[in-house]
């Protein structure tokens, strides 16, 4: 009893976060690929997505894939938000962000001088993560409003009507794709952050 109690080293990323992160990544990829197939049936802009990168061989299959993954995305996203607030994760890891810190860290990142400290997100990461959480909420709300413009009319109204909701949904998708690109580039720049996102990793011992 008198001896110092043994502490299991704390992981850099707790398991619920890792699980939800990879479930989300999988669901997002499936939804984006099938969403592009659905988009192609009635394009909003002057282009369509090449068939080789869409999921589902035709519109019906694209819709089937899309509907198959919306629940996974919504349940997973909801769990992440609840867990993030209740466990204090958001407050500890994503907050605060100040415009100054963001500008400073963007500058440092462009000069490849952004230090990465295990278990601490720099300001660029914080902005990106909060941004993609917002894009995620937007894509779910706008998605529900184009899927159920009658039953969930209040969501459709919130998005500015059925017609505009399609553009909102598309824009949120574009933001997530842009995020994903930057996110993966950042991981490739500092590849040692990847294993802990899979296995959990160990936080360096802290003196308290």
């Amino acid at each position: 009893m008198g001896r110092a109690t043994y502490h299991k080293p704390r992981p850099i990323h707790p398991w619920p976060l890792r699980l939800m992160h990879w479930v989300n990544a999988f669901a997002i990829v499936m939804l984006i690929g099938s969403g592009w197939q659905i988009y192609n049936a009635s394009p909003l802009f002057n282009f369509t997505f090449p068939e080789t990168i869409t999921i589902g061989a035709w519109l019906g299959a694209g819709i089937a894939w899309h509907l198959a993954f919306i629940w996974l995305l919504m349940l997973n996203g909801l769990s992440y938000l609840l867990w993030g607030f209740l466990s204090g994760h958001f407050k500890q890891k994503l907050w605060p962000i100040t415009p100054r810190a963001v500008l400073h860290d963007i500058g440092a990142a462009l000069r490849f001088k952004l230090p990465h400290q295990s278990g601490v997100y720099n300001a660029v990461q914080r902005v990106l993560y909060l941004g993609v959480i917002f894009a995620g909420i937007t894509i779910v709300i706008s998605g529900l409003s184009i899927w159920k413009p009658v039953q969930l009319w209040f969501l459709t109204d919130l998005c500015g009507g059925f017609y505009i909701a399609r553009y909102v949904h598309f824009t949120a998708m574009a933001c997530i794709v842009a995020f994903l690109f930057i996110h993966v580039v950042l991981v490739l720049m500092v590849p040692r952050v990847l294993p802990p996102m899979i296995t959990g990793g160990k936080l360096p011992e802290v003196q308290s």
């Binding site: 990168i53 869409t54 999921i55 061989a57 035709w58 019906g60 299959a61 089937a64 894939w65």
Partner: peptide
């Protein structure tokens, strides 16, 4: 793996 996923659904409802 991601690449495989995108080619796999080519067979759906065919």
């Amino acid at each position: 793996a991601l690449g495989a996923i995108t080619t796999l659904p080519g067979c759906d409802f065919e």
